[in-house]
């Protein structure tokens, strides 16, 4: 990845775009290389909650159910499953377009940056099936030379009932 950007924010945006590109171009192994070995990748379930109990909106990390609660080993397993040609939920492979926007650096601590963004992911499966995933993401990125590694990704999908039959896409 050539990086002509100068500001830290531009570097972060460039990194997030590159990540999405790799997924959309199905370069899953290259995408895995952008994840830290101690990466945590988590997407809670979402609930309708009473206004004064906002802590009820998302299931709790490392405790409750979740759409995803992954580490590098299990993400690598998922990549090996998708790329084997025998995972019928992704064979033939779907078409995806990952978009990240509203990127903002929320904090910097040592060599780690907390980055918030919004995502919109479009998936077209086989012929007419469309999955649209919109939501918020909080990433912790770790400096890695002139680039970054994803150390933690928290994904907050704006759906209580999943309006798709499968989650075969990386976020």
């Amino acid at each position: 990845m050539i990086d002509l950007s100068s500001s830290v924010k531009e570097q972060v945006e460039n990194f997030l775009s590159y990540e999405g590109e790799l997924l959309d171009e199905r370069k899953f192994d290259a995408w895995l290389d952008l994840l830290a070995d101690d990466v945590r990748y988590w997407m809670p379930l979402v609930r309708n909650f009473q206004h004064d109990k906002p802590e009820m909106e998302y299931t709790r990390e490392q405790c409750d159910a979740a759409w995803f609660d992954e580490d590098k080993k299990t993400l690598a397993q998922r990549v090996r499953q998708i790329t084997g040609g025998d995972h019928w939920a992704e064979e033939p492979l779907s078409r995806t377009t990952h978009m990240t926007t509203n990127v903002r650096i929320d904090g910097i601590a040592g060599d780690e940056l907390t980055v918030k963004c919004r995502f919109l992911i479009y998936v077209n499966r086989r012929d007419t099936e469309i999955r649209l995933f919109a939501g918020k993401r909080v990433d912790i990125l770790r400096r890695n030379g002139s680039s970054f590694l994803v150390r933690k990704r928290s994904i907050f999908l704006d759906q209580t009932t999943l309006l798709a039959k499968n989650l075969t896409t990386f976020f």
Partner: peptide
């Protein structure tokens, strides 16, 4: 419980490495 929860999360439903293929079927 943690080990079982992680196994279950990997197994079933839309993110499940087993049941994704059932759902497609």
């Amino acid at each position: 419980k943690d080990v079982l929860r992680h196994y279950l999360l990997r197994y079933g439903g839309p993110p499940g490495m087993v049941e994704q293929d059932d759902i497609e079927n």
